[in-house]
Computed example of a mutant assay.
Amino acid sequence: MNTPAGYFDDQYADTDDPWHLAERWYDQRKYRLTAAALPRPLYRRAFEPGCSVGALTELLADRCRRLLATDRVDRAVERARRNTAGLENVTVRQMVVPDEWPEGSFDLVVLSELLYYFGSADRGRILAHGTRSLEPGGHLVAVHWNHPVPEHTCTGRQIADELADSDDLGLLARYDDPDFTLTVHERRTHAGSILSPAQSEGLA
């Protein structure tokens, strides 16, 4: 069962940053670890669904030639657009995943604090969309909270375990702490292999 859509509308009813994402050290640290975990210095075209107010979007923009960030809540989209107004490589749109998904392919998909709002069926659809839209050698990053929350259907560790079952993705990195789990997966090439950052530069 998915978290009801009204939950998000209620969260944004009285503030445009209900989780204080732009203020808390916990979130700033997590976002910097997420950006630092990206295996490439620069991505051609990236997708970040569930961007909320765009706090992580601003960091990802430094690593992407083009970045599409989306959220289902109009107020979040408005705030994210204001926060990224000076970044010409960023586009912010209203979009409801998994029923909507952007056209074209990406070499980076970032799923941050998103998947635990969905039941197993829709979570599987999002992961399937994300995997199919990744170019071979592209990266899927997932980072999610580990503590139980009534509105969450699972934890970051459970999401990481689900991703580990994918035949199309290979694990490059996993970081666990008491608060969140971060994983970086690579879409396997036709040869089935994945390359670490050192291997991609011929160092290993």
Rank of each mutant, 00 (worst) to 15 (best):
L56M: 11
I194V: 14
T155L: 10
D107N: 02
E162D: 15
L169P: 08
E151L: 01
P49K: 02
P102E: 06
R65P: 01
A128R: 15
D165G: 05
Q11M: 13
P98Q: 08
G104D: 10
C64E: 11
L172A: 10
A142R: 04
A142I: 05
W19Q: 07
V97H: 06
R82H: 12
A198R: 15
H152L: 11
L115E: 13
A76T: 12
G124S: 15
S196T: 15
G130D: 14
D17L: 10
A5Q: 03
D168N: 14
T34N: 12
L108N: 05
L67V: 03
L87Q: 14
E113S: 07
Y175L: 14
V141K: 09
Q94H: 09
T84Q: 04
D165S: 14
D9V: 11
R174N: 10
T70C: 06
H190T: 12
L21S: 10
V96D: 14
T153L: 07
P39S: 06
C154A: 15
A35Y: 00
L163M: 11
A36Q: 09
G138N: 08
T183E: 09
T3Q: 02
A69S: 15
F118A: 12
P39N: 05
I126C: 04
S196Q: 08
S133H: 06
D71Q: 12
A76Q: 12
V141P: 03
T189C: 04
E23C: 12
T34E: 05
L115I: 09
C51G: 01
Q11V: 01
E201D: 09
P98S: 10
E201R: 14
A37D: 12
G156P: 07
L108G: 08
D14F: 00
G156D: 00
L115G: 15
S112E: 03
A204L: 14
E100H: 04
D107L: 05
Q158A: 15
G86R: 10
P41C: 04
L127Y: 12
S52N: 14
A191C: 05
I194Q: 11
D10H: 08
R188E: 14
D27V: 03
H20S: 15
V110H: 03
D122P: 06
P18Q: 02
Q199T: 10
R187E: 06
P197H: 09
G119N: 05
R125M: 12
L56I: 03
R63W: 03
R40H: 12
T34F: 03
H144K: 00
L68A: 01
W25H: 13
E113Q: 05
R157F: 02
F118V: 11
S52A: 15
